[in-house]
């Protein structure tokens, strides 16, 4: 099977490759230490570290509203939610570390602009209602993806996803609760909710990735049980769940071609502006520079802190004659 012009498997031992693929076909999980094709390792490090970066960068758009959350409960919820995103990044970096990547390398790749992260976090959060809309739409879309990845063939990635899914439902629900309340609230709250939907609908649809025809990695990743569904399949699940709920909340979805197809039982959306998607992925989104600048600033301002702790640990270890961890 040729999946790209240059077969990334050409150099692999055919017997080992066949054993590996048989294990995946049998539903076994691959664990660190097991034999795996170098392309499997490479693709996983790419996917998992991008996913980790997305969580870490994804703290910023919503985090910006923590200090203005309009009730004590909303403030607590938002801190807990953004904190969970740090936690999810932490779990994912751990999963990538089991493949031999170090967190130092991954952080460096992000800060130097060599790594990608989800395009959706390069849009600005302009009003408080954006926090709710991100929870409902962006986390709603993320959950669809994460539920799929919880079944992935690589043990550590699957485990991180199972843990993340268990926590992420709260993110979705608190967003839903907010937006529904504002959609039924004061005139200003209703306007705020609709405006947020107008701006976040398409970024959320896009964040599930390019059409299958433009997603060169998908066939191999499906064959190896890393992705269990295609981008379009996951996007369809998201659409079928969210379109009727948003309409029921009294909001209008900014897609004139959106309709329910009685024959298939599925919702059908209009064309996605993929030019915008690729522009944002490649670094030209409205907030790319700001997001990376914020990450770099925190990293640089934290450097002396990390160094002080390391110095303290080294001194304590040499004092006791212990070997530092």
């Amino acid at each position: 099977m040729t999946v790209t012009d240059r077969d990334p498997l050409a150099h692999e031992d055919p017997r080992r490759l066949a054993e590996f693929e048989a294990r995946i076909a049998a539903g076994e999980k691959i664990e660190p230490g097991d034999w795996m094709p170098s392309e499997y390792r490479r693709q996983l490090i790419r996917m998992i570290s991008q996913h980790a970066h997305s969580e870490w960068v994804g703290m910023l758009p919503e985090g910006a509203w923590i200090t203005a959350a309009p009730s004590l409960r909303r403030k607590l919820i938002l801190i807990a939610k953004v904190q969970d995103e740090a936690g999810h990044g932490q779990y994912l970096y751990h999963a990538a570390e089991t493949l031999g990547a170090t967190r130092e390398e991954m952080v460096d790749a992000l800060l130097e602009g060599r790594a990608k992260y989800s395009s959706v976090f390069n849009y600005p959060t302009l009003t408080w209602a954006d926090v709710g809309m991100i929870g409902w739409l962006v986390d709603g879309a993320a959950i669809k993806n994460q539920v799929m990845l919880a079944g992935c063939s690589y043990g550590p990635y699957s485990r991180a996803m199972v843990r993340i899914c268990a926590e992420e439902t709260f993110h979705h629900k608190q967003g839903q609760e907010m937006v529904r309340r504002y959609a039924a609230g004061s005139p200003a709250q209703r306007r705020m909710a609709q405006d947020a939907l107008d701006r976040w609908w398409w970024p959320a649809m896009m964040m599930l990735g390019p059409h299958d025809s433009d997603s060169p990695n998908t066939p191999l990743l499906k064959r190896w049980g890393v992705k269990v569904k295609t981008n379009d399949e996951v996007r369809q699940e998201f659409l079928d769940e969210h379109a009727p709920e948003l309409l029921e909340a009294g909001l209008s979805i900014p897609d004139p071609e959106l309709r329910f197809d009685e024959a298939t039982g599925h919702w059908v959306h209009g064309p996605i502006d993929w030019d915008e998607f690729w522009r944002v992925v490649k670094g030209d989104g409205p907030m790319n520079a700001e997001r990376l600048a914020a990450r770099r600033q925190a990293h640089e301002e934290g450097r002396w802190v990390r160094e002080a702790m390391a110095a303290h640990a080294a001194r304590a270890a040499s004092a006791t004659g212990a070997v530092p961890a």
Binding site: G63, I79, V305
Partner: peptide
Amino acid sequence: DSEWTGHAPILEEDIAIANVAQDEIG
């Protein structure tokens, strides 16, 4: 404390300070 959320020196401490912030507000 909550102003650190997303900006702490390392991920683990980002989570820790967000915990302290939630506790104090609680």
